[in-house]
């Protein structure tokens, strides 16, 4: 399935799909989306890329070995639970910091964001390793 149309379209699409995944990841706390959905979207994007260009190209693009994405994902998720432990709360309790002053708009950042990023990486790593493994075999 190495059609020129698919190849050309894929180049455009994959970038957009990944940006969309990133958007889903970040907006997930307030709107439908989140780490799971974002990882599935990104995984689909890479799967499309692998179908169009072959798994080797995906590996070069991702750089990291996919099995080594899932593990750091778990680590990020676990680490995001530690600040709560240091604050004397149960593991994985959300801790929030507010940046900026009330006049010019505030940004609230919390450990659940990092947890969601960990979920994203873990699920993406799992999908990529299976799809690339099957494609290459």
């Amino acid at each position: 399935m190495r059609s020129v149309i698919l190849k050309t379209a894929t180049r455009l699409m994959v970038g957009l799909i990944l940006i969309f995944a990133f958007y889903l990841l970040l907006r997930g706390h307030h709107e439908p989306g989140g780490g799971f959905a974002a990882a599935l979207v990104a995984g689909t994007g890479f799967a499309l890329f692998a179908i169009a260009e072959g798994p080797a190209k995906v590996r070069t693009a991702v750089r990291l070995r996919p099995t080594l994405i899932g593990m750091p994902g778990l680590a990020v998720a676990a680490l995001s639970g530690l600040p709560a432990v240091f604050a004397g709360k149960p593991f994985l309790t959300g801790i929030w910091w507010t940046l900026g002053d009330p006049g010019s708009g505030q940004l609230t950042i919390g450990t659940p964001l990092f947890f969601d990023i960990g979920v994203f990486l873990a699920v993406l790593g799992a999908i990529l390793s299976i799809i690339l493994g099957l494609e290459e075999h």
Binding site: G34, A77, P112
Partner: peptide, 20 residues
């Protein structure tokens, strides 16, 4: 938990250990 999407908040905050 500073989140408007309740489903996501449950997943990443209230029940984060399950999700982990």
């Amino acid at each position: 938990a500073h989140g408007r999407n309740i489903v996501n908040v449950i997943l990443v905050d209230f029940r984060a250990l399950d999700t982990f």
